[in-house]
Design a protein around this nucleic acid. Structure first.
Length: 120
RNA sequence: CAGGUAGGGCAAAUGAUCGCGGCCCGUCCCAGACGGGGUGAGGAAAGUCCGGGCUUCACAGGGCAGGAUGCCGGAUAACAUCCGGUGGAGGCAACUCCAAGGAUAGUGCAACAGAAAUAUACCGCCCCGCAGUCCGCUGCGGUGGUAAGGGUGGAAGGGCAGUGUAAGAGACUACCGCCUCUCCGGUAACAGGGAGGGCAUAUGUAAACCCCAUCCGAAGCAAGACCGAACAAAAGCGUUUACGUGGCCCGCCAGCUUUAGGUAGGUCGCUUGAGGUGGCUGGCGACAGUCAUCCUAGACAGAUGAUCAUUCCCCUGCUUUGCAGGGUGACAUAACCCGGCUUAUCGCCCUGCCUGCCAU
């Protein structure tokens, strides 16, 4: 991804959970924390409760793909953690995309104006 | 054709756009970035249940403990796997299934029922004594006999028939079973025959202890090997130019070098291997040998995805040619590598064999 990298260390995850703000909808939960750099860092977490390895991998890929295709719309300098909820077990790409952008709107970290957001 | 049985194979396809991990090549402002090329999950990658390779540690040799295996022979690096047999069970058959050593070394356990459960006399049968008697027998008693009959039980001291006896009993006899010895076929498990023992073993359980035979050192790639900042440590050198302690010197401190140590981090291990495919030879077969040919993922918080279109498949609805709508289109994601086992699985294809029916 051009402007972003992934969040890897457990301590980074913990930091975002403890100090970041969170919003949730039906399928996803998103934590956001400013990291003081130019780049965004994205972490994706899918619990074992959601499903087996195939389902979990598939969900992380869907989330990452949604983020990648809309990377330009997000502001920079953020640590983000996206958690998939069990209800997201068998949703399609388009539903993931819409859920992610909805959360972005709630956090007010997207660059597009609100009128455009409501069309999602 | 129908039903069955055994085995093998596939695991939706094609294209376009965007994207990701290794590899190779090129360019540049060279810890990187960009461009191009090629490559990138499974039959079970799963469970982590066995067996091995590999690595480190331990180890003269022997024993104990503990664990595993358990009909025989073979295959193999090895196995709890596989192949071929033997025995038993099921099926008309093809074929399938079996934890299949020892209960005759010993110990334990066995609900309920039953008189009694490894030992027995409840009823019954018989004998003896006494009493009574309608002379059929009846009643009472016996440190009397008896396991044939009844009843209980999964199991009652081999089975069954006869002889025998007061009634009975391997007490005796035939057949079957068991045990011992022996002959013969087979590498063997075992099969077939003969003789003897009167039976000394005689309910089941060894995935109860146990006995017998054979095998087994431990931990795992987060194994392990190498490089190695920073901080701190030791030794050596050495300026008094700078900070602090001193009136001054030495010394401490500071600086440089070296040394181990091995942290963060990095590199290797890491994919060419008991390897795949095809042919030939040996073998009933598992498999072995040989020749040719191919190189086919190596991530390290972990790449292999998304969208769209067409076809295929499935589902639903209809006018059952077809049309419309719907469907993450089975299970399941490599993590050092192999050989197995077990479990999950939408559909579909191929082959051998058996039984039945029809036709020839």
């Amino acid at each position: 991804m051009k402007y972003s990298e992934s969040l890897k260390k457990n301590s980074d995850f913990k930091n975002v959970y403890r100090n970041g703000k969170s919003y949730a909808n039906r399928y996803l939960v998103m934590y956001v924390l400013e990291n003081g750099t130019e780049r965004n860092r994205l972490g994706i977490s899918v619990s074992k409760k959601v499903g087996n390895s195939v389902i979990r991998h598939h969900l992380t890929r869907l989330v990452r793909e949604s983020y990648r295709l809309h990377e330009d719309m997000f502001q920079s300098g953020l640590d983000m953690v996206v958690i998939a909820r069990t209800t997201a077990k068998d949703i399609s790409y388009h539903e993931v995309e819409s859920a992610l952008l909805h959360l972005g709107g709630l956090h007010k970290i997207t660059k597009i104006d609100k009128k455009k957001m409501e069309s999602f």
